[in-house]
Structure formats: C-alpha cells, structure tokens
Simulated assay, not measured.
Amino acid sequence: MTQQDEIIIVFTHVPHMACAETIAQTLVNAKLAACVNISSPVTSVYRWQGQVEQAQEIGLTIKTSRKVYPALATKLKALHPYELPEIVAIHVNEGLPEYLQWMMAETGPKE
C-alpha cells in the first residue's frame, strides 16, 4: 500500500463555530487528525424526516490517516450534536510527498 492510500480527508458539518472549534481541538490533540480546517458558515439544504430543511452550518475538513479513522469516527460521533452526523471520507490519490509524510507522522499514538 502506498502512502497516498493511507491518507484520507473526512468531512462533517456542525451547527456553530464553538462546536467546530471543540471538535477540531479534540481531534488534533488526540492525534486523530493532523489538521482540521474550519470553514465559514455555509447554507445547507437537505431532506430530513420527510421535510426539506435549510440551516446555516460550519464545515470541517479533517485531514487524517486510514489507520486512525475508526477511532476518529467514534470520537467525532460522540462529540457531534446531530442525531445523524455527516461523517464521510475520501481517499487522497495524489499529494506533495512531504505533506503526506507530515500527515502520517501527526496521526497515531501520542508519543
């Protein structure tokens, strides 16, 4: 397996900035994420329980490795205020090798 196969990006959205900051700090401090980008508010339109809803949310882009994804998903679900949180991941196919090495070094057991 190549280094690129080991890197994933996880996406979620939360209802407010305080929640986003708490999740980001928790994941990085636990070495479950190398970096978390917190976006500006976005408007989300979605169907929930048969109704079309619209809400302002804060997006999180979580840069991590496959080796810690199970623990990250468990922690993220526990911290997330939504009944059914968005937790989706994509694999990174290409990237600056030095950046990918940094991401791998920053995720995993605390030293």
Rank of each mutant, 00 (worst) to 15 (best):
M1Y: 06
T2F: 11
Q3S: 12
Q4Y: 12
D5Y: 02
D5G: 10
E6W: 04
I7M: 04
I7V: 13
I8N: 03
I9H: 07
I9K: 09
V10L: 06
V10W: 01
F11V: 14
T12E: 05
T12R: 09
T12P: 01
P15S: 15
P15A: 12
P15L: 07
H16A: 09
H16W: 07
M17R: 12
M17C: 11
A20N: 08
I23H: 02
A24R: 09
Q25S: 12
Q25D: 13
Q25T: 12
T26A: 11
L27T: 05
V28W: 08
A30D: 13
K31A: 14
K31W: 01
K31P: 01
K31D: 02
L32G: 00
L32W: 00
A33W: 01
A34I: 03
C35M: 09
C35Y: 07
C35P: 00
V36P: 02
N37L: 10
N37M: 09
I38T: 11
S39Y: 02
S40F: 11
P41E: 08
P41W: 03
P41S: 07
P41A: 08
V42K: 03
S44M: 06
V45K: 11
V45G: 10
Y46E: 08
R47A: 15
W48C: 12
Q51T: 09
Q51M: 12
V52R: 09
V52E: 08
E53P: 00
E53K: 12
Q54E: 15
Q56T: 15
E57T: 09
E57H: 10
I58Y: 00
I58S: 04
I58T: 02
G59A: 14
G59Y: 00
L60E: 01
T61G: 13
T61H: 11
K63G: 01
K63L: 03
K63P: 04
T64I: 06
S65T: 15
R66A: 15
R66E: 15
K67R: 14
K67V: 14
V68I: 09
V68K: 01
V68N: 02
P70K: 11
A71Y: 02
A71Q: 12
A71G: 01
A71F: 04
L72V: 06
L72Y: 03
L72H: 00
A73I: 07
T74H: 11
T74Q: 15
K75L: 13
L76S: 04
K77A: 14
A78Y: 02
A78I: 00
A78S: 09
L79G: 09
P81K: 04
Y82T: 10
E83P: 02
E83C: 05
P85D: 07
P85A: 08
E86H: 07
I87N: 03
V88G: 00
A89V: 05
A89N: 06
I90F: 13
H91E: 10
H91F: 07
H91R: 11
N93R: 10
N93S: 13
E94M: 11
E94D: 14
G95M: 05
G95E: 01
P97Q: 08
E98S: 13
Y99R: 06
Y99C: 09
W102F: 05
M103L: 15
M104D: 05
A105S: 05
A105C: 01
A105I: 00
E106P: 00
E106R: 06
E106K: 08
T107C: 15
G108Q: 03
G108D: 04
P109G: 11
P109L: 12
P109S: 14
K110C: 05
K110Q: 10
